[in-house]
Design a binder for these strands. Structure first.
Ligand SMILES: NC(=O)c1ccc[n+]([C@@H]2O[C@H](COP(=O)([O-])OP(=O)(O)OC[C@H]3O[C@@H](n4cnc5c(N)ncnc54)[C@H](O)[C@@H]3O)[C@@H](O)[C@H]2O)c1
Ligand SMILES: NC(=O)c1ccc[n+]([C@@H]2O[C@H](COP(=O)([O-])OP(=O)(O)OC[C@H]3O[C@@H](n4cnc5c(N)ncnc54)[C@H](O)[C@@H]3O)[C@@H](O)[C@H]2O)c1
Lengths: 195, 195
DNA sequence: CTCACATTGAGAAAAAATTCACAAACCAAA
DNA sequence: TTTGGTTTGTGAATTTTTTCTCAATGTGAG
């Protein structure tokens, strides 16, 4: 679904107004029926004999994926990785905004990263309300990840993305996802061996 | 498959010697038959009436995934993200070693990151041979990604992991994978909306 | 308005993946 | 050696996913 969205955005940028499922399928590298089934799943967007209106369809998918709102994120642990994420522009275009940078280290507090000021993790709860933070991102060292998670949960945030290579435990109503860099490397080396 | 491996490693660390498909299935959150099918796919490892020998099975999966060798990687673009990846310990345990740090910026060349010295991108070809580099990792700004890719291809490296948010074009015999941070955020926000 | 053409939406068919079920194989104890 | 209790490996059954097909519907020309 995210692939369709990306292709649709490219088409829109090229000025295309209408696209047929077969053309879109070709661009996405899938079967035309696949596309029609997927799109029909959450509403009827096509026009028989014509195709799909690129902009309308794009908006519908965005709405379905929740990309028509902006989502506010906080980063906890402002080391190399935290900074890289704050500076990463690509996510802003998709409607995710990093609105808070938190760290435990007293020497870092007050320091500027981009146009964010690093804030003490203890103030996360207070700031989460103020900034309406919906997603917490953990980029602390592994042995601090659980502590960071606790702060995020405490602040009432219901979604966590954890970059540190440790499992964290949280209440059932909090969604956690893990980023594992090694996954990509395993894929590549596997391909190198097995074609 | 990578999940089985992780669970097996945990089991080995706990001193377990034998595991049945049903126990392993439980730990991985899948069906026992699933496990037996998957394992039977690349050889007969189990012992009827007994189960699977944890260590043997772990080794076999590692071999199958190519994780019994060490893979040498080079990072091209030593900014925040590049540094974060170099310092990231978790991948070393899986057999991936970052043996080269390359950057274009003359002011960075010679600088130390961890125990690596930053080398000029122009020397990539020469160093790739010397260090037997098999995987190239791009962490340059987006507008430099293609140039970095060209250097990597030129150096005879056949696998590329691209962190910059741009598509790159390479010859057919080079494998490319893309890391898109936004994928994880989309997953989280989608879950927040749709349960 | 009618006709020729294009394309969707959805049910039918095909393919793929998952799960079930059980014979074959193994171990341990008697 | 035989017996009883396990657990794998695999063919069959089931479920899910993907693809095919075509009636229904829209467009635009005449
Ligand atoms: N998942 C991946 O793909 C991936 C890739 C690279 C790095 N990593 C991991 O990301 C983590 C961070 O990497 P890095 O290079 O930025 O490390 P780093 O040491 O540069 O930064 C860690 C930061 O966390 C702060 N911190 C420590 N305890 C804290 C706490 N309780 N609350 C708030 N902040 C706290 C530190 O002050 C420091 O600024 C590491 O665990 C690393 O292994 C993951
Ligand atoms: N995929 C993801 O999930 C993700 C996450 C965060 C950042 N990023 C992306 O990663 C990239 C790097 O981020 P960063 O924060 O480290 O940026 P940065 O600006 O700190 O570092 C970029 C480095 O690349 C070097 N460089 C530029 N041109 C080069 C060339 N031709 N050859 C070799 N080196 C070259 C620069 O000298 C600099 O050191 C950005 O494109 C960013 O958008 C991706």
């Amino acid at each position: 679904m995210a692939v369709y969205l990306q292709v649709l955005e490219e088409l829109e940028a090229e000025g295309e107004e209408i696209i047929s499922s077969s053309k879109l399928a070709q661009l996405c590298g899938v079967n035309p029926s696949q596309i029609r089934k997927d799109l029909a799943y959450f509403g009827e967007f096509g026009v028989r004999g014509v195709g799909y209106y690129v902009t309308d369809l794009k908006e519908s998918i965005k709405h379905f994926l929740g990309l028509d709102k902006t989502w506010n994120c906080a980063i906890v642990g402002i080391g190399n990785l935290g900074r890289a994420l704050i500076n990463h522009r690509a996510i802003k275009d998709k409607g995710y905004r990093i609105v808070g940078a938190f760290d435990w280290d007293p020497f870092k507090i007050g320091e500027k990263v981009g146009d964010l000021e690093i804030i003490c993790t203890r103030r996360l709860k207070e700031k989460a309300k103020e900034l309406n933070i919906q997603i917490g991102i953990i980029t602390t060292p592994p042995n601090r990840a659980q502590r960071a998670a606790n702060h995020i949960v405490e602040a009432g945030i219901k979604a966590i993305l954890n970059f540190s290579p440790t499992r964290i435990s949280v209440p059932d109503d909090v969604i956690v996802d893990y980023v594992e860099f090694s996954r990509y490397l395993i894929y590549l080396s596997f391909k190198l061996i097995h074609g």
